[in-house]
Design a protein around this nucleic acid. Structure first.
Lengths: 211, 211
DNA sequence: CCGATTATGGACACGCTGTTCAGAAACAGC
DNA sequence: GCTGTTTCTGAACAGCGTGTCCATAATCGG
C-alpha cells in the first residue's frame, strides 16, 4: 500500500504528474485540459480516469508530496527560533523546484493556490506560539494569514525572478520582513486611548526584551 | 461616453454585475456559468454577449470601479506616513463591501484574485519610496509583493470574520504588522563581506533573537 | 508460462461556450 | 403621439471539454 506494487501504475502516475507540472509552467491550471495532460504523458484517456477522478485529483498527489516534505521537523540550527520552519520551507522549495514552481510561480489557478496556501497556513499555525494570552494586538488568525501571505509573496518573487538566490538568502529576507511585525503583534494590545497614535511611529524594535 | 446614454444599457449592465457579485458569494468565479448570471439577472443570453465578450469582461467593469475608488489621493491625516494609502484601502473596501467581498473573501477564483492583487500592487508600488539607494536588504519587487500580500491577508481575514472591526482598527493591525518589517528592509543591506560568512545561521543583523 | 491486473481506443451523452438572426420592445427627439 | 434608431429577446447551432462505458490488447507477478 505504501508503495504501489505494480510498476505500470507507478509509471503512469509519474508520467501524468510530470506532464501536469510541465504544462502548469505555461498555462494556468484551469486552462489545462485532460487531453493536454494525457497527450503530453502519452497515456490513454481511459487510463487517466482509472487513476484519478479529476484534474484536481492528480494535483492532490503533488500537493501531498509537497506537504510531506515541508512539514518534517525543522533542521538543526533553527530549533528555538520564532518561525522554526521558515528555512525548511525555502529549502524544500529549492529542492523540489518543478513542483514548487507549478504551485506558486506563474499563473497558478484558483484551486492550486488555495490548497498550497492551506499547506503553508498549517505550517505557520504550528509554528506560532499557541496564543498564550489570547489578547494580542492582532487576532491569531489574522497573524497566520499575514505570515502565510509573506511566505507566498517571497516564494513567488523568488521563483519568478532569475536572480539565483540561495534558500538561506531568501529566508533572511523573509525573516527581516516578518519577524519584527510578528513581535509587535504578539505584544498585548496597546491601550486604545493613550498610545493609539504611537503605532505609526514605532521604532523597528532592534531589541525586544523577551527575557 | 462617461455616462452611457441609454437607460436600458445601464439597467442591464448593473443587473449583470450585481448578479455576478451575488453569485460570487457562493461559488468561485470559474464555477459560475454565463447561464447562472443571466438567469439571476433576468437577462437574455444574447444581451449578455452584446455587452461583454466574456465573464471576465463583466468582472473587469467591477475591478475598474474598485481601482478608481482606491487610487484616489490619500485622505487628510495620512499625508506623510510610510504607506499613505493604507487607510484609504480599508475605508473604500468597507464602503464597497459587496464588490470587495467578491474580490477578496471566500473562494475567489484565479483571474479575480490575480487582477485584484495587481490593483493593490500598483497602489503599494506608488506608496513605497522609489528606491533611492537601490541597495536595500530586500529587493524592491519582493517588498512590493510582501506589502501586497499583507493587504490581501488582512482583507481576507476582515471580510471573512464576523467581528465588526472598523477600517481604522484593521488599518492599525495592518500597520503594526507591516511597517516594522518595511523599515527593516529599507535599510541598506548588511555589509556583504563582514557578516556574510555566517549567513547559514540565519537571523538578520537587527533581530537575532536568543531564546 | 498463466491468471490477474492494467492500458487502450473509440463511442457516447451531457453541459458550457460564443455566434447568428429575425422580430419585439424601449428609447430619444420632434 | 409618431418615427427612426437602438437595444433586448428567444431559439437554434457548431465546437469543445468532461466523464463514462466496454471489449480488446498489453503487461505484470509469481
Amino acid at each position: 500500500m505504501v508503495t504501489t506494487p505494480d510498476r505500470r501504475v507507478r509509471r503512469t502516475r509519474r508520467a501524468l504528474l510530470d506532464a501536469l507540472l510541465a504544462l502548469m509552467a505555461d498555462k494556468p491550471f484551469d486552462a489545462i485540459t485532460v487531453a493536454d495532460v494525457i497527450d503530453r504523458a502519452d497515456v490513454g484517456r481511459s487510463t487517466f480516469y482509472n487513476h484519478y477522478t479529476d484534474k484536481a485529483g492528480l494535483l492532490a498527489d503533488g500537493l501531498a508530496a509537497f506537504r510531506a516534505a515541508v512539514e518534517q521537523p525543522a533542521c538543526g540550527p533553527a530549533a528555538g527560533r520564532l518561525l522554526p520552519h521558515s528555512l525548511n520551507v525555502f529549502s524544500h522549495v529549492h529542492a523540489h523546484q518543478p513542483l514548487a514552481r507549478a504551485l506558486f510561480a506563474g499563473p497558478a489557478g484558483a484551486p492550486v493556490l488555495h490548497q498550497a496556501q492551506a499547506v503553508l497556513a498549517d505550517v505557520v499555525r504550528a509554528d506560532l506560539p499557541s496564543d498564550p494570552h489570547e489578547m494580542l494586538a492582532v487576532p491569531t488568525e489574522a497573524l497566520v494569514g499575514f505570515v502565510t501571505g509573506a511566505y507566498l509573496s517571497l516564494l513567488r518573487w523568488w521563483l519568478d525572478s532569475d536572480t539565483g538566490n540561495t534558500p538561506q538568502e531568501v529566508d533572511r529576507m523573509f525573516r527581516a520582513l516578518v519577524v519584527p511585525g510578528v513581535r509587535a503583534a504578539a505584544r498585548p494590545a496597546v491601550a486604545p486611548h493613550a498610545g493609539a497614535a504611537r503605532t505609526a511611529s514605532g521604532g523597528t524594535g532592534a531589541a525586544t526584551a523577551r527575557a
